[in-house]
Design a protein around this nucleic acid. Sequence first.
DNA 1: TTAGGGTTAG
Length: 661
Amino acid sequence: MYLDSRKSLEIDQMLKEFDGFNLVVHNCLINSYLEWGNVSEARKVFDEMPERNAVSWTSFVSGLLKHGNVDEAMSYFGRNPFSDVFSWTATINGLVQNRLSFEAMRLYKKMAVYGIMPNDVTFTCILRACGELGDFELGKSVMGSSIKVGFEDNLSISNSLVTFFLRLGEIDFARRTFDQMKEKNVISWTAILDMYVEMGDLEEAHRIFEEMPERNEVSWSAIIARFSQSGNVEEAVKLFQQMVKDRFKPNVSCYSSVISALASLEALPGGRTIHARVLKIGMERNVFVGTSLVDLYCKCKSTKDGRVVFDSIPEKNVVCWNSIVSGYSLNGQLGEAKELFNRIPKRNNISWNSLIAGYLGIENFSNALEVFDGMILSGEQPNKSTFSSVLRACASLPSLEKGKYAHAKALKLGFQHDIFVGTALVDMYAKSGSVESSKTIFNRMATKNEVVWTAMIQGLAENGFAEESLSLFEEMEHASSVAPNGLILLSVLFACSHCGLVDRGLKYFNSMEKVYGIMPNERHYTCVVDMLARSGRLREAEKFITDMPYEPEANALAALLNGCKIYGDEILAERIAEKLTGRAETKTGGYVLLSNVYASGGKWGDVLSTRNMINQKGMKRSGGCSRIEVRNEEHLFYSQDETHSQSKEIYWVLQLINSEI
DNA sequence: TTAGGGTTAG
């Protein structure tokens, strides 16, 4: 029995005035103080008690352990005159809960020296410690001891054993223990259910769930949570509906899980229905449910509603703050994200990561890096996802220096072996033109997934190492278990196109569906058009465009037009330019390219009239832009415009170099 | 004194 904090103080006061002593009331007082986190009052009552029994000692020691006061607890434990299996077990349990499993084991071994026999609860605690330590042999020897003492068919111990085997990934042992149990309860079933969900065998999990003779709200919440986390969100929602239909009362955990599932589905109407239920039972102020709701509204692009829920949560923790920051970030509302980020009382690395990801999302790469600098300065430890974002920002900026700095930091923290960080590094170096560094990182990676292969193959192709890119692709096909995907094949086509390997490219394109089972998309088609156009097979390219199953991308037409320019085919150019100008997205592109076709053919009159048309229609030219960094300064070069302050000098030098060549 | 479930980034 516990008293609330106000009542505890009142009763404490009354007892003092009464000057009486009742052991039971004092023990209750200690428990109440500890329950409310008032350790110093509990200590005072305990120290001033004229007489203590075994219960006083055990509850005070385990209360201290519950609040992390380990040294003090151990000191009181050593002085306990009522040393029995309860006091030892409670202490062992407290140590395990403080993640001091090694110390817990030591205490367990000491029990024998003092002649105290462990009971069933001792074994469950100690098995948990073995699980924490990841020591399979130790767990098995504890199991042996428990059998020796006669606990072979003990339900709690068997349940703990199942969990222990699961923690160590010993699936067969877990299943065998479960199958051999004479008696099973809802905990045993939930544990084994969890195993199948964790293994990703959701069908078997579902079967187990159906088979369970008994369910409670924890087993429901276990299966709903697991389905939700593993991405089987529709199934999670269905189970929730079933649970309600079966007249079970969903608890906080069920609501948070189902709301989180609805958030990934971006199911706003369903979310609002659940929100209404939550409001009805007064659960919206709960930090778990509230946080899920904030996330739901933000993922459904309704940051306003998310903010209302956020403001209504009385006791916000860092997860809750992070959800609103990431919610605003996700929706590109970086002003709000930054403002709330600044108000977080105690940030963690996820808070920083959320803001960095936000700037990355709106392609404000320099701010993303600025936040990263702030993170380092604040002493917060970046994690692998920080580096993954930061390196992506570096890849998009001309600065190789910043990328190198982030790389050094990642090395220092030992994240270089992480596949996400490794991939981001490969990509960053390739995009910054440092193909050699990119290759070094790639070759050092112990495990490679399709993303990193894609990054390397693409990096080589885009840096002009087309042959190498293609041989890497072949190596991937022969030496790895990674199957080519659409993106990799796009890089392969790109490489063929830039290498002039038209027939090989066409062979890859034609085998996409047949050999690799990948439907080519618009981008693949565009790449083939570019490939044909570059090699002068203009009519073939035109036919390819006419025959393709999609409306050609503007880029495909532009690529063909570019081919017309190189090979001086003005008739085809006019036809294509007309098609291109119908496109809203590139009204200018067609004309600019057409005027280039005329220019290369020396038809200056046509050039002029085309350019006039661009101006008449009030079209803004949007040319390409190159960026380089020289001595920490960014220089931008736009196609067709000489806007750089030193363009005169630059072109002069360029001319000089050209004449030298 | 014990064994099963919960919200945020990538």
